[in-house]
Design a protein around this nucleic acid. Sequence first.
DNA 1: TTAGACCTTAGAGTATAGTCTAAGGTCAAG
DNA 2: CTTGACCTTAGACTATACTCTAAGGTCTAA
Lengths: 148, 148
Amino acid sequence: MKIGELAKQSGLTAHTLRFYEKQGLISPSTRSQSNYRLYSQQDLSTAKFIKRSRTMGFSLEEVEVFLSIRADKPAHICADAKDIAQQKIIDVQQKIEELQQVLVALHKLSDACCGGGESAEFCSIIDALDDSENTVTSNTTNIQEGVV
Amino acid sequence: MKIGELAKQSGLTAHTLRFYEKQGLISPSTRSQSNYRLYSQQDLSTAKFIKRSRTMGFSLEEVEVFLSIRADKPAHICADAKDIAQQKIIDVQQKIEELQQVLVALHKLSDACCGGGESAEFCSIIDALDDSENTVTSNTTNIQEGVV
DNA sequence: TTAGACCTTAGAGTATAGTCTAAGGTCAAG
DNA sequence: CTTGACCTTAGACTATACTCTAAGGTCTAA
C-alpha cells in the first residue's frame, strides 16, 4: 500500500510517517517504479505499534528501543522493556503529583477572588501573586516544563 | 541593582531576565552610563511576580495578562484575572485525568511482564503494544504533547 | 487528454521557554 | 595596569514532535 493508505489505516498522517522514517522508526519495505513508498502488512503493524506506544505516553526515543526489542526479541530480555515502562510510570506519577500541587495552589488563588465585575483594585489573585509573604505557594520547586 | 543582583534576588537567571525583556514582560527602570541595566525595588517585585506566576503553572502569555492587570488595576475587573485562573484549573485537571488514564494503561502493560532476565521472546509488553486486539489501551485519544 | 488526487524531496516553520555563545565593553581590587 | 567578575548585543541552539511548503512527478478515471 502507498503512504496515504498506511496513514489512513494506522491513524498517523503521511507527513508523520515520513518524519518517523527520517527518525529511523519505520521505513517502507519497497519502492514502486515511480519511487513511491510501498508498505506491507508488516509495516502497517509496525506503524500501529508506534502509534499505540505514543498513545501510552512513550517518547519517540523510547519507542525506538521498543522497536529494536521487537525486531530481535531473542537478543533482548524482558527487563529491557519493563525498565522503560517502570521508569515511565515513575515519571507520570511524579508529573501527576506536581500537577496536583499546582492545582491546590490554583484553587487557593482562585477561590479567594470574587471574579465579578468589580474593579481589580483589590483583586486577591493579583495580590497573592504579588505578595512575597503570601501563603498560596506551598513550594518553590521550579517547574521545568509547561504545566499544561 | 544590576541584572546579576536581580537574578539572585528573584530566582531567575540573567539570561532569562533578558529573555523576558525581549518578550515584553519586564524591563529595567534605567540604564547606567555604561548601558548596564539598572533595576529598582519595583522591578524586583515584578520579577518575583513573574516567577511566582510561572511556578503556579501560568504561561508567559498568561503572565503578560496578569502583568497588565497589575499595572493598571482600575482598568480591569476581577473576572479578568479569575477567568485565567479558572481556565488554568480546568486545563490542569484535564491534564491530570489524561495522565491518570495513561498511568492505568502503563500499569496494565508493566504488571503483565515478568521483567526478568528471560528472553523477550514472549515479552508481554511488546506483545501488548503489538497486538491490535489488546485490552491495554482503553482509549484512542491522541496525546498532543509529550506525557512527561 | 486532462483534471484531480496522490506521490516525491529538501528544507523551513510551529510551539514553548529558555539556554548558550562569541566578541567585546566596564569596573573594582590589588 | 592587569586580572577577574560582571555587563552588553545579536543571534544561534536546545528539546520534542511534528506540520507545512514549494516545486515538481505519477496515476487514474471520465
